[in-house]
Design a protein around this nucleic acid. Sequence first.
DNA 1: CGCGAAACGGAGTGGTCGCTCCGCTTTCTG
DNA 2: CAGAAAGCGGAGCGACCACTCCGTTTCGCG
Lengths: 210, 210
Amino acid sequence: MTTPTLRSDARRNRERLVASARELFAAEGVDVPVEEITRHAGVGMGTLYRHFPTKEDLVDAVLEDAFAELVRLAEEAAAADDAWAGFTGFLEQALTRHAANRGLKDVLASEHGRQRAQAMRERIRPLLRRLIERAQEQGALRPDFTAEDLPLVFWTAGRVIETTAAFAPDHWRRYLGLLLDGLRAEAASPLPAPPLTQAQLARAARRQHG
Amino acid sequence: MTTPTLRSDARRNRERLVASARELFAAEGVDVPVEEITRHAGVGMGTLYRHFPTKEDLVDAVLEDAFAELVRLAEEAAAADDAWAGFTGFLEQALTRHAANRGLKDVLASEHGRQRAQAMRERIRPLLRRLIERAQEQGALRPDFTAEDLPLVFWTAGRVIETTAAFAPDHWRRYLGLLLDGLRAEAASPLPAPPLTQAQLARAARRQHG
DNA sequence: CGCGAAACGGAGTGGTCGCTCCGCTTTCTG
DNA sequence: CAGAAAGCGGAGCGACCACTCCGTTTCGCG
């Protein structure tokens, strides 16, 4: 983390790039062409690529705050006395962010991220694992649900958001409602297949998109 | 439906194209480059485009049988005495086809299809609508579920299939199990958002992918 | 068999994208 | 205030895609 004292114009341009990218990624997703980002920032392509070796590095940098907020949400959820409320509240809050930020959804749904995205996942994982266990001990969450099933919720809700957010911005809440009714302990009937292993999850990560 | 008596080589090449496309679409999805299809069929690009004005027309022609099979499945489901069994059985059977045929999943999830895909949808729709009503009258399916919620099931299950089919070909069944447990009448708690209108569904159709 | 029409094939077009290269400009130091 | 170093910009590259165009080949009728 050396900060090699950027020249003033360099620092200004870097900030403009991050600001433009943040805006465009949130509104249109991470697939906006880099050329559009540089045009919006009023700089050239060369400037972008001197600051960020690849587009993915830019994505990772831009979404740093959003990742931090998700970590904070997970910490709050983990602290809830009512573990079911913490669990459902986390899903609602996290998905609200997904719906408001297409770029965040793209990165989380596809696990495309770089270091920062991975770091966030690793901070969140144990918090949610504990939360799931507690919700099961409290008799609220079905006992056959595992932490490895959680990505399923985000992948599928992400699809609903992609499909409906443009004209029914809250529709994913209906989907989440249906799904959560299936996650309650009282609703559980035997499942026909085991959860994914962690190795399989890692493969799934690589499989999304590119 | 005029059949203008194709020359023998033309007919043979057309069949080869359809056979190659069927194989490649099923295995790799509709995004296989057309050049790969023509190479596999042993013909030139020109030959493909004389028979099918666009790639989408080829897709539509290739999947005709798969569409017909889905219609048949819906008819069988609609005839079931136990409407819940018919409903869940249809979902299982239809998703089994999705999992076995990436191209079918691509077209159905994204409503990309041409005439034949649309025709299939219009034949299936009233059958499933009746089935849903009957399952609700029999007290099995939650009463706030509507026919307009069904695409949600296919969109989301499609995502699970995309993500996991390569290494856990049955994992979508676990997802479907969780979701179905939320669709039973006993599991229902109030939903926070109304179903999509048909106009919104039409917009969602256009929104997927391209 | 011969000839016109039908069909063929594949290089080429135009579009998109992430990314690079290098001649030019700006900043900052002594 | 001058010169070196740091930074800049954007045309161009290469990869990929669906699709077209036209000189060549094949078919099948008379």
